[in-house]
């Protein structure tokens, strides 16, 4: 399996409501893919299924690993993260009363191994591991330009920096793929431009794939190599930005049907 993520026929029912209806999607290594669609199309539900917050009703979610594809349906979120998928949230979910650096170090958690005896007796190995983790996290913060605030509480950061910190925290989990849920929500045009550069920079330097949900069409068209469009839980189109822009189905979903047609 050469794709980093492969989703086949993913379906998610909430009682009688089908929020996601047999959606197929794949992401290749180092690719930036966008998932767009009107409000309530099922994009975030799709993310939640992939990252283990929901267990999908039907379908397969396959993640690339050393031994071919691994089916991760129903894995707990922390096991999914261990497999190399890290996410951010649409409504920021930082740990507000922890410092910026601690937030990022939580992301490192699943790559560290200190157990209870290490914690109690703080042996040489544990100390070295902690120091290395703190330094690596600091380097991530430097990369995103947040290193000056590393001892601040996360809740004291300005909004744009909180969004960046979420990305930093996700990066600390050493992912193969980053899932960003509306990273530009609530940002002004200048911040959105900066974010576009940032996401591209992350892809180039970290060599990871990025799947993002976004409503800002300028960002989506600028950044993504391929786009998937969802509406009413179904995938209605996929292709390059140019193809999507001229796809009549997509235009209909976004603007509604012409009365004359």
């Amino acid at each position: 399996m050469e794709n980093i993520l492969e989703v086949k026929g993913l379906t998610m029912d909430f009682g009688g409501l089908r929020a996601v209806d047999s959606v197929d999607l794949y992401v290749k290594p180092k690719e930036i893919v966008a998932l767009i669609g009107p409000n309530g199309a099922g994009k975030t539900t799709f993310f939640n299924c992939v990252t283990g917050i929901y267990t999908p009703t039907k379908g397969d979610i396959l993640v690339n690993s050393n031994r071919g594809g691994v089916r991760i349906n129903g894995f707990k979120p922390n096991r999914v993260t261990e497999r190399g998928l890290a996410r951010t949230f649409q409504n920021i979910r930082l740990f507000p009363n922890m410092t910026v650096l601690e937030n990022v170090m939580i992301g490192k958690h699943c790559r560290l191994s200190a157990k209870i005896f290490g914690a109690l007796f703080r042996d040489k190995k544990t100390r070295a591991e902690e120091l290395k983790a703190a330094q690596e996290c600091y380097v991530i913060l430097e990369k995103l330009g947040l290193e000056k605030t590393c001892d601040e509480l996360a809740s004291n950061l300005p909004y744009g920096d909180q969004r960046k910190l979420e990305i930093a925290r996700a990066l600390a989990t050493e992912p193969k793929m980053l899932l960003l849920d509306e990273p530009a929500a609530g940002m002004n045009p200048q911040e959105t431009v900066d974010l576009t550069h940032l996401i591209r920079m992350i892809r180039d330097t970290e060599q990871i794939a990025i799947l993002l949900i976004e409503h800002d069409m300028k960002l989506v068209m600028n950044l993504s190599e391929r786009i998937y469009v969802m509406d009413h839980g179904q995938k209605i189109a996929d292709g390059t930005p140019v193809e999507i822009r001229n796809n009549p189905e997509v235009i209909k979903a976004y603007l509604g049907e012409d009365i004359d047609a």
Partner: peptide, 26 residues
Amino acid sequence: RLQNSRIGRAWLALREDEIACQAMGI
């Protein structure tokens, strides 16, 4: 020592936001 360890950090994160905490691999 527990408080300032990897486990202590995980507890703090759990207190702050359970869903985000799981999504970050805890």
